Computed example of a mutant assay.
Amino acid sequence: MAFQCQRDCYMKEFVTCVVSCCPAELKQEVNGKKETLKGFNVKLQDTILFPEGGGQPDDHGLIGDIPVLRVTRQGPEALHFVVTPLEEGQEVHVKVDWERRFDHMQQHSGQHLITALADTMFGYKTTSWDLGRQRSTIELDTPCVKPTQLQELEEIINEKIRGHIPVTVQLLSIDDPAVEKVRSRGLPEDHAGPIRIIDIEGIDANMCCGTHVSNLSQLQVIKLLGTEKGKKNKTNLIFLAGNRVLKYAEKSYSTERSMVSLLKTGADEHVEAVDKLQKSVKLLQKFFQKEIMFFSSNRKEGDNEFMNIIANEINTEETLVFLTVGEEKGPGLFLLAGPSGAVTQMGPQVLELLQGKGAGKNGRFQGKANSMARRAEVEALLKEHCKHHTSQEE
């Protein structure tokens, strides 16, 4: 059978009944640690919450006011993991996390479009794909994709999106001759019910269990970020679709503004400014071979990525770098980078003074600060450490 979420990908709320509720466990990772959560697997008469499959992650949502933490498929059934039991036979109101769902729809339909055109235009077959939290990756069966091919592919992709091309769903019996004509990487062993075909009119027909947009125009835009070397002579194509492109542009602009404020140059001059900064630091290091240099900076705006960009451009093997983001005396973010011994020794003390939470490894210690009120004390402490280290070396 097809679930309601597959029959109507745009349905946000749904009323159904509880078929069963059995004790279960959910293994998950929280802050890098594996935990086992005790709860219940709930089967519903039908569901608008998509169970993971076809490379697409599961939906999140609510059954009544109870959060659904995971949805998995078991043969023709969907299992909804919750921490509160539900009574068998009771009528329930199900609501999907629409922002997450629509994001998955955009990325998945985007993958189908990219895969079909990469094959048609260049003969590059897709062997797998990954819908990541921030970006998605398609594994192409080719050792490389030329920059000119990437540009041409992106132009055609977005031309098709502007063409307002319909995307439809067909349900076919497994012995239907039409099944043989569609693209597929095979059915799962526990498949049950009709074959579901996602048809992008005039472009692609593909077996798929996932949720999709009903028209390519709803993808808005697709940006091919680039390629990376894959495994066994394959290439990973990295892309963003729809709202992710807008979020990426917003984040990039925020980082650019922070860089402008820090480097005191226009965006087009950032590479040159950082290059000069690197050369200046290297020059100073020649004169102070035995001394741990100290560099500190605070900006009101920025994020962890911004701080790591700055730290990456400084030789932290011989420079202790202390960066913070946030308002004076308010909460914020911090990064301590430098020689691993110094960072390991000073990181916990910085954490205590900033009343924060964080962790470190490989010469970096970063986290959240509840209060920046004692930032000056942290600077003084780190400067003293650098002087003490120098005197010991001499």
Rank of each mutant, 00 (worst) to 15 (best):
D130T: 09
R100T: 06
G123I: 11
T142Q: 02
R135F: 07
E91C: 13
E152W: 05
K160M: 03
L140R: 07
P147E: 10
F102D: 01
D141V: 02
Q151S: 04
E155Y: 03
V145Y: 13
E91K: 12
E91H: 03
R133S: 13
Q170Y: 09
T148S: 09
K95S: 08
L117V: 10
A118I: 02
P85F: 11
L140C: 12
G89Y: 06
L172Q: 01
S109K: 14
C144Y: 08
Q134R: 12
V169L: 13
K160C: 04
Y124C: 10
I114N: 03
P143W: 09
S173W: 06
L150D: 07
G163V: 00
R162I: 00
V92Q: 10
I174R: 13
G163A: 13
D119L: 13
T127Y: 11
T148P: 00
E155A: 14
E87N: 12
I161T: 01
E88K: 15
F102H: 06
K125E: 09
L153N: 04
E152S: 15
D103R: 15
I156M: 00
P166C: 09
S136G: 09
Q107Y: 11
D103Y: 08
K146L: 11
P147V: 05
E91D: 01
H104A: 06
T115W: 06
P147S: 11
I157E: 00
T142Y: 05
G89M: 06
D97R: 05
T120M: 14
T120N: 07
